[in-house]
Design a protein around this nucleic acid. Sequence first.
DNA 1: ACATCTTGTATTATATTGTAATACAGCGTA
DNA 2: TACGCTGTATTACAATATAATACAAGATGT
Lengths: 259, 259
Amino acid sequence: MANAKARQQDTLFVTSLEKGMRILEAFSEDKTELGLADLVKVTGLEKSAAQRYANTLYELGYLEKNPETRRFRPSVKYLEMAYSYLWADYLAQLAMPRLIDLSRQTSQTINMAEPIGTDIIYVVRMPNHRTNFGASAIGRRVPALVASSGRIILSRQSDQAIRDAVNNWPIRQYTPRTTMDRDAILDNILMAREKGYCTTQGQVLPDEVNVAAPICSIDGIPVGAIHCSLPSIRWTIERAEAEIAPLVVEAAQSIVPSR
Amino acid sequence: MANAKARQQDTLFVTSLEKGMRILEAFSEDKTELGLADLVKVTGLEKSAAQRYANTLYELGYLEKNPETRRFRPSVKYLEMAYSYLWADYLAQLAMPRLIDLSRQTSQTINMAEPIGTDIIYVVRMPNHRTNFGASAIGRRVPALVASSGRIILSRQSDQAIRDAVNNWPIRQYTPRTTMDRDAILDNILMAREKGYCTTQGQVLPDEVNVAAPICSIDGIPVGAIHCSLPSIRWTIERAEAEIAPLVVEAAQSIVPSR
DNA sequence: ACATCTTGTATTATATTGTAATACAGCGTA
DNA sequence: TACGCTGTATTACAATATAATACAAGATGT
């Protein structure tokens, strides 16, 4: 794209660093161990470039190397970055005590999500029942239109913004029950706007009922959401609305960041 | 150091990437927002270098920029790295269901830590009572000699390794009660070896009692620890040993990674 | 209110540094 | 045994990062 060319001529853009970050980012949910040849495929770098950058990250301690297979893996340094981030995330710090209280009150899985582009990302996770590993892992991104957190955040935006998002933002089918019908998503968001919380079922994981409430800054801008995840074996949407939603809403409303 | 020089001549080491990572790493618990001049101080880079690398990371989305103060902050991309890491961490995935169960059984704060050099790092955190923010954040590093998790991991190593660590590894005084006496630490580790779990009080946070048990691979190598943190207002070490330790030990023993 | 210091931004000519090509060795496969 | 596919190591070359610099805009202090 034109962007890439413009960057190459920009003396303030260091292409070497970009290539290094491509290696760092090559690892993901389904790519946990990559050899040099794999890195070439995933990143699109030249073989010798991939060799140099991977080796550099290895020496810096960001990658570990299986001496037998000679494949690379992310090191614990990836986690340290999350720690640094969390201290810079004002909302996470503000919300943490309330999330802990909510987790105790409900004895259920509590998450906090923040919007990022067309996705939401989980910043705090407090699992209280066994589930998919990804659902207990921090840093997961899910399309905003699919996640109850994303929908409730959208519900606090203007009609225009909602319609634009519902029509254009990406959706991914996580389960057979994931709603692919954008009109139905719009209805769900508009209902959530009325109620003050959003309920969904089986959107990301097959057997889960979700309740999410928005966290809004002092000037009313939605900056995040609290999301409670319940096993659908024992919870219907109705029961969740009656017993859980009020607590989630109360917790979310008690968090009012100034910015 | 000689290392730095050797690296410069190594054609497989890309110094540009190293400098970029220095910028990424400049942010930490007490440095959450840094301007260009701050980055120069923290990283030791030239002003123009800091400018280029910070700008590159900004354009790549790793840093955000406060348009008023013109200072940089880590972006949510830092968290995504943690997500990628967790999928590559076999132990975390294996342990997660058991940690969730333990959290429910005890209704107390449960953590899982892994050894890394002379520190331990928290890989999973399940807070169940209000505490210091850092104590609920993933990716925190603590000197192994100070943390109960670190001590119980050490207790499963050879006498030689224990003595070496106790004599040479770093200690940091987190609270007035942090044990700075290395003999006392040795005693605590040896007692932990006997009992199969380690108890501490007020080592990292003033008002907490801690119980940790080791996770060992199938060939007996300690690869991590489960750590339960209790508010000392309601818990003594004795009560923790009676009521909590058996559960923590049982959970830890039920996790037996093959590697 | 003024002068001064500090900070962030932008530009340039230079050589340091990353580059791609290549050759080699170790493994598993055919 | 030969072949393809890895990961590793070394080169001569030029592309890219570099340090120096200049400027503008705030912040600081008197």
